[in-house]
Amino acid sequence: MDSTVTLTVDGTSHEVDVDTRTTLLDALRERLGVHTVKKGCDHGQCGSCTVLLDDRRHLTCLALAVAHDGATITTADGLGEGDDLHPVQQAFLNHDGYQCGYCTPGQVCSAVGMLEEVKQGHPSHVTDDLKADVDLDGDPDDSGMVDDEITERMSGNLCRCGAYRGIVDAIREAAGLEPRQDDARVEQEARP
């Protein structure tokens, strides 16, 4: 069974005929040629297919395209303004928040969505007080908590290269937080 769906992807509206079994991920990659969205595990375990769907981070592999007719999707390609990178993208560059880069578009979309969730006051699994105001800053004397919050909130995005340290540093910068004492980039700049 085929169905026509309208998807707005990175600001461009597309009308596309899809078999009802087509996932949003396959519709984006195979039908619309949007290759910013990566297929990793295809089973909702790795996060590499993450986009912002109607402004929230969302997997595209565990979603049927036909069920998302009318959706507005932002991939990593649509985050910046013209030639200017989104601050989260720039922070990933600044801190080497990747190695091979395959998971990076999903990581970046997830980080953008996650920072918005923090702004809206969403607690996480590691947040001590469910009733208090929420931020990533935690207790200034307990900078370890910031990294616990970031890693918990980003746990849906795997990086097989293991660039997690750079990813956490990048998110700290994008969130306007102080760098970690042993941030590789800070160490490098401090070297004579």
């Binding site: 909702g44 996060g47 993450t50 929230r56 981070r57 969302h58 997997l59 565990l62 979603a63 997830s110 969505g113 996650m114 969730e117 607690p123 996480s124 699994h125 947040t127 469910l130 909130r153 980003m154 746990s155 849906g156 995005n157």
Partner: peptide
């Protein structure tokens, strides 16, 4: 109902919880 919030926050990932 903090047990409900805690149970949900302990499940899946941010992306999947949004969905």
């Amino acid at each position: 109902f903090p047990a409900v919030s805690r149970a949900l926050l302990a499940g899946a990932s941010g992306q999947i919880r949004n969905q």
